[in-house]
């Protein structure tokens, strides 16, 4: 049941990111809903499983949009892994979550530029940071907060919590 819910959430987030986000921008930047959902879920359960589900659905981005298979999936995997390692052993703190999530967003962007270079697609790191990544901190701050609030309630449901997480934490 838990895995079904994780897949459903990741799939809906993926559809929203690819189909709705391009039409709703802030400072010219599209919000990455799948990314924000993934980080919120990793933070809630302190496990890497949501990253795998997000990456699985990011493969569909690769199928439709990418110039190389794995271009999008790798970004979610690497950023998710980084966020998990940063957050796994820390005490719960909204501030730490937000700061780590914002740093992860920048890391994802820098990694994306590296992938562009690796796949022989011209991309200037400074231009990308100036035009997209840094203004993107604003829309993602909103998304991280919204999904934090949503998932702090969703994770009260036993069906989505990992089986080992038997104590009902005060989400």
């Amino acid at each position: 049941m838990r895995y079904l819910l994780l897949e459903a959430i990741a799939f809906i987030s993926m559809v929203f990111t690819s189909a709705l986000s391009p039409n709703f921008t802030l400072l010219g930047v599209q919000g990455d809903i799948l990314f924000a959902v993934m980080l919120a879920m990793v933070y809630m359960e302190k496990r890497l499983t949501p990253v795998l589900f997000a990456a699985l659905n990011a493969l569909i981005f690769d199928a439709l949009f990418a110039r190389a298979i794995g271009f999008y999936t790798l970004q979610y995997l690497v950023a998710g892994l980084f966020f998990y390692l940063m957050i796994a052993k820390r005490e719960d703190s909204f501030l730490v979550y937000i700061i780590t999530a914002e740093v992860t967003w920048i890391l994802k962007e820098v990694f994306g530029v590296l992938l562009c270079m690796l796949t022989d697609n011209p991309m200037n790191l400074w231009t990308r940071l100036r035009v997209y990544s840094l203004p993107g901190l604003v829309i993602h701050l909103i998304l991280f907060t919204v999904f934090y609030l949503i998932f702090s309630r969703v994770y009260r449901l036993k069906a989505i919590r990992p089986s080992t997480m038997i104590d009902e934490r005060d989400f």
Binding site: R67, A68, I69, L74, L115, L118, T119
Partner: peptide
């Protein structure tokens, strides 16, 4: 995926 990215670029 790193191998795939490079090989399918």
């Amino acid at each position: 995926l790193l191998v795939l990215v490079i090989s399918t670029s």
